[in-house]
Design a protein around this nucleic acid. Structure first.
Length: 684
RNA sequence: GGGCCAGUAGCUCAGUUGGUUAGAGCAGGGGACUCAUAAUCCCUUUGUCGGGGGUUCGAGUCCCUCCUGGCCUACCA
């Protein structure tokens, strides 16, 4: 008897939209769930929005609305995005639900009962202006060890770690105010009392990937486990702790309980019992998460479940991050792609397949290479797979499939035998292997039809049976592949089912050929990916982010940087890093304005003659007419790019550029060297 | 600093417990076909398997060492 399976994906934080980085995980999980169902395992897939914490509170405050309004809107967007990628949850809950509050109380009571909760007074920085305690990441200041400025609240680039209270000249990133050190009583869970249990559970080789077990052993389990600070004083958006008024459960306490709460919601709607799913040894529990939240899911969460008497996770599947073009996703480069933006340009099937083809069972990051994305999807899905149906279906649209399965030289049979291999790869989350194997099979199907050439047979009468047989084989190979691919490509599985007049919902269907049935008219199943669409998506994505940044000119940034507005840096973010050598290619010189004259027909230009010392002069047409009167420029010193390639302009040749800041028009500001700089001196 | 992982054809990767001339897909080159979404099929080029040392009859595969890269090191996926 197979066990029933409860599957979760990490709860996305209700503070931002879903992007393709998130989607790696949801696609991975969805594939696994669909695979389980295809194998006839009773499977429940739950998720929820993670809604609590300081970040949500601050954002709601900034937007002048309630946290509830914010998270409701975000939840709607998340659900829409997931649906757009064919991610099919049985229940999508929220950590801000009655079910969750109640369950939190239950887990809390269990911790209390075990005597694991202790009170400790700690010093924490408080922002008097914003009226809130500051999480580490909301404090910046000078590193007490190396003296580097503008470092995060808990660690410095130099590698030193500390508490925010140790920072020199700390500044609140929220308001810019100088935080005060305040003492507050927090509640802690004495995790060390569960050390033995956690040692066994993490190291027994059953529940975690080996490298994760090693990581925990090396980082945490080698020393006594620290007490876990599990409460936050008001103001905090979350659940107030019933027996500690004025204190709230830390978001990471109630978030994983959200898995249970979402399950409960589903149970209540479907007349099921929660205990069958979370308290029964007959149910496997599988969590899919990203490696950044390993710690919470592999130490705290098992500890909480253990203490509360719940079933422990069967397996925690941890994946790496998504990079694009080998780099971290970048808003500026447009590679920080929101789900919505992707869907405006591309079919989700492409993404699901590409991600599946790259996902292995380990924690390696996986890279979205946009050129590879296009060629892989087109070549594998359209060229190899869909093409089979596309080229064979029309020959049998009147006759249907042969009544008995013809001799195909063992093609179907051997591909059927490899089904278990593919299934095992899916089971182990080694989708890359599964996709490789499937494509290997597809690579045998096209040569088959090619060698039989029904389009040639058709030219001579009397070949009807052979044509039908050849197409019966080809379409059955296609159907078999469609079943193998169904967890990844649900839409194609549906379309394939329609072609055959059946529903492809059981892995076993891949093991026996379909014969003697009609074939419906072939409808185009998948368009090729156009590189132009990908490019447009990237461009859109970059534009959105630029607009968003400009609009939301952050209180965060401006406050931490004194009175200067962050606006300019946001409008024009820093360029790509360049090397010293790159920089030295640009020859900047101090120059004196020897002559400046108006160019009557030009709207923006002034003609400048710049002296570099001695007799050397350069003529430069500068777009500063609206900002400067030529007469006032003569004699002053400026900085120019002296080795710029000459450029022919309407009014003459410009031999360089003067350096100025500002967006243009009247807002142009020439840079001047300090008084003693001499024309001709290089700037570097 | 500590830890984990990786380094195999231009690119993405596969190479099971060490065993014959190291593989696939894509890209490149040549040809064929025309049923199919310029899809498909056939043929084809390319590798000091990161460097060095060692174990062995035999190493991409084990050991040592060095180099390079990625990631993690208590709340962004």
């Amino acid at each position: 008897m197979t066990k029933r399976k409860l599957v979760t994906a990490a709860l996305p934080y209700a503070n931002g939209p879903i992007h393709i980085g998130h989607l790696v995980e949801y696609v991975q999980t969805d594939i696994w769930v669909r695979f389980q169902r295809l194998r006839q395992n009773e499977t429940l897939f739950v998720c929820a929005d993670d809604t609590h914490g300081t970040a949500i509170m601050l954002r709601a405050r900034k937007e002048g609305r309630s946290e509830e309004a914010l998270i409701a809107e975000m939840r709607e967007a998340h659900i829409r995005d997931f649906a757009g990628f064919d991610i099919l949850f049985d229940n999508y809950g929220s950590t801000n639900s009655d079910e969750n509050r109640e369950l939190c109380g239950e887990f809390w009571a269990a911790l209390r009962k075990e005597g694991l909760v202790v009170e400790k007074s700690i010093e924490q920085l408080f922002d008097p202006e914003a009226g809130t305690f500051l999480a580490d990441r909301f404090v910046r200041g000078t590193c007490p060890k190396c003296g580097k400025q503008d470092q995060a609240g808990d660690n410095c680039e130099c590698g030193h770690t500390y508490t925010p209270a140790d920072l020199i000249d700390p500044v609140s990133a929220i308001s810019g105010a100088t935080p005060e050190v305040r003492e507050a009583v927090h509640l802690f869970v004495e995790l060390e009392k569960l050390h033995g249990f956690l040692d066994e559970w993490t190291q027994n080789g059953k529940h975690l990937q080996q490298e994760v077990a090693n990581y925990l052993k090396g980082h945490f389990l080698g020393d006594p486990l620290r007490d876990w600070d599990i409460s936050r004083p008001a103001p905090y958006f979350g659940f107030e702790i019933p027996d500690a008024p004025g204190n709230y459960w830390y978001v990471w306490f109630d978030a994983p309980i959200g898995y249970v709460a979402s399950t409960r919601q589903w149970c209540e709607a479907n007349n099921q019992s929660l205990s069958d799913w979370w308290l029964s040894p007959d149910t496997e529990i599988h969590h899919f998460i990203g490696k950044d939240i390993t710690y919470f899911h592999t130490l705290f969460w098992p500890a909480m479940l253990k203490v509360a008497g719940y079933q422990l996770p069967t397996k925690i599947h941890i994946h790496g991050f998504l990079t694009v073009g080998g780099e971290k996703m970048s808003k500026r480069k447009g590679t920080f792609i929101k789900a919505e933006t992707y869907l405006n340009h591309l079919n989700p099937t492409y993404f699901r397949y590409y991600i599946a083809a790259k996902l292995g069972p380990r924690l390696d990051d996986l890279d979205l290479n946009l050129d590879e994305f296009v060629t892989k999807v087109n070549s594998d899905l359209v060229g190899k797979f869909v093409n089979l149906a596309s080229r064979a279906a029309k020959f049998v649209k009147d006759t249907g499939l042969s009544a008995t399965y013809p001799d195909d030289g063992g093609l179907f049979e051997s591909a059927a035998k490899r089904g278990e291999e593919i299934a095992e790869a899916y089971e182990n989350c080694d989708y890359a292997r599964a996709m490789r194997t499937i494509m290997e099979l597809a690579d045998k199907a096209n040569p088959y039809i090619e060698s039989k050439a029904p389009w040639v047979l058709k030219k001579e009468p009397g070949n009807e049976q052979e044509i039908q047989d050849v197409c019966t084989v080809t379409l059955n190979l296609f159907r078999q592949l469609a079943i193998y691919l169904a967890p990844v490509l649900p839409r194609l599985a549906t379309q394939a089912g329609e072609l055959f007049g059946e529903s492809l919902e059981n892995w076993q269907q891949s093991q026996a050929p379909l014969v003697g049935t009609e074939i419906n008219k072939f409808k185009r199943m998948l368009d090729r990916v156009e590189k132009e669409s990908v490019d447009k998506m990237i461009a859109d994505s970059a534009a959105e982010n630029a607009a968003a940044e400009a609009a939301g000119a952050g209180a965060l940034a401006s406050a931490a940087q004194g009175d200067d507005s962050a606006e300019h840096l946001e409008k024009e973010p820093l360029a790509d890093e360049c090397t010293f050598d790159d920089f030295m290619k640009v020859d900047l010189r101090v120059a004196r304005v020897v002559a400046a004259e108006d160019v009557p027909k030009a709207k923006k230009l002034l003609k400048l003659t710049l002296g570099l010392g001695g007799d050397v002069t350069k003529t430069v047409f500068a777009g500063i007419k609206a900002a400067y009167d030529p007469a006032t420029l003569v004699g002053r010193k400026v900085v120019m790019v002296a080795n710029l390639a000459p450029r022919k302009m309407k009014f003459g040749v410009s031999e360089g550029m003067v350096i100025a800041a500002g967006p243009g028009g009247e807002d142009v500001f020439l840079l001047s060297p300090d008084d003693d700089a001499q024309p001709g001196q290089r700037v570097h």
